Simulated scan of single mutants.
Amino acid sequence: MQLSLEGVSKKVGPQTWLYDMSLAPRSANVTVLLGATQAGKTSLMRIMAGLDVPSSGRVLVDGQDVVGVPVRERNVAMVYQQFINYPSMKVRDNIASPMKLRGDKNIAQRVQALAEKLHIDMFLDRYPTELSGGQQQRVALARALAKGAPLMLLDEPLVNLDYKLREELREELGALFASGDSTVIYATTEPGEALLLGGYTAVMDAGELLQYGPTAEVFHNPKSLRVARAFSDPPMNLMKATRQSTGVQLLGGPLMALTLPSTATPQLTLGMRASAVRTHAQSGDIAIGGRVELAEISGSDTFVHVATGMGNLVAQLTGVHYFDLGAQIQVYANPMQMYVFDAQGMLLLAPTRTKGH
């Protein structure tokens, strides 16, 4: 099934919820809608599903405009943060319900396989009200997968789950999506989730579609500062700089031999991902002195917040490290791993990617 949105917008009273946008998600693939809360992801998905009508534009399914066709007449599977299950049915029957409507065979085996993948096989003979919120969300997710609809809409489906289970299910879902024929639209606020799911990513912000393309390409080549901010966790480190005849000069910092397009503006913004900032020098690095403001351990990484004369930086270090608050520190970064944006916030230069990255 090919879904296409042409010039779609949504206004509610004087407010614009979605600005004019066009998007054609790749069929039989996953498209991630990435953006902060109120970026417009849910509004866009409701229009895709037929729950809402756009204020302008067309929604095409295999070339046919389906604006105004009610959701019950569309073959769509949906899972939202507010999970919905049939309370009078046991988990087993909840998952099996769309298969029974189609008259499928081998229903019991397929229900068992889905339940195992989503870690709910031990709850098959319970009622949804006997489960936790996270467990009920997985039941709703299993039922949506069981439907096998050509269009599957998932609005932050893992948000109610604990961290460890989220990590496990992301990998499972990625494999399930890749092995299926459905066009999957998956909304999330988490850049890491988009990277794990792969496929394609549409970056949204305040009702605007900022960039769409293969996930890795959008991550490594954000076309603007707004995209870079949305697709960085922790946020990208940003520093003011100026264009010089021999390169780029950090304000209050060193001159770096970076080659910019001839059209580059005099005032620049330099971006460094937290993972590109180190506490040990490597060949070609520049040094930036500062003071430790905070050091926090998250999972297997340590995030060090450093106040410098050029602005605050965050360094993402692999492993568990300890720092004294207020201690003087030197952090290092390679100019070849930096992004350069012009005065309008548009990308001028991105780090060169090595093969396989």
Score class of each variant (00 low, 15 high):
247 G>H: 00
236 M>Y: 02
193 E>Q: 12
188 T>N: 04
185 I>P: 01
207 G>A: 06
204 M>Q: 06
213 G>W: 08
196 L>K: 13
229 R>Y: 11
164 K>P: 07
176 L>N: 11
182 S>E: 04
208 E>A: 15
193 E>Y: 13
171 E>W: 12
165 L>T: 07
214 P>N: 08
155 D>R: 10
221 N>Q: 13
161 L>H: 04
204 M>R: 01
163 Y>F: 15
236 M>R: 01
233 D>M: 05
150 P>C: 15
193 E>C: 04
169 L>W: 08
148 G>L: 09
185 I>Q: 01
228 A>N: 15
174 G>P: 07
195 L>V: 14
208 E>T: 08
188 T>W: 02
223 K>R: 13
161 L>E: 07
201 T>Y: 03
200 Y>N: 04
154 L>Y: 07
158 L>S: 06
197 L>R: 00
171 E>T: 14
248 V>Y: 04
193 E>I: 06
178 A>Q: 09
242 T>D: 02
197 L>E: 00
222 P>Q: 01
177 F>D: 11
250 L>P: 00
149 A>Y: 13
244 Q>A: 15
213 G>A: 05
224 S>D: 04
172 E>L: 10
151 L>Y: 01
186 Y>M: 04
207 G>H: 12
219 F>S: 03
167 E>Y: 11
156 E>M: 09
178 A>I: 10
252 G>I: 02
229 R>I: 14
210 L>V: 08
207 G>F: 12
223 K>Y: 09
259 T>H: 10
167 E>L: 15
235 P>D: 13
156 E>L: 04
207 G>D: 12
182 S>K: 01
208 E>L: 06
149 A>T: 10
177 F>V: 14
234 P>Y: 07
242 T>L: 13
148 G>P: 03
179 S>N: 15
238 L>Q: 05
177 F>T: 05
178 A>W: 14
147 K>A: 13
157 P>Y: 02
245 S>Q: 15
174 G>T: 14
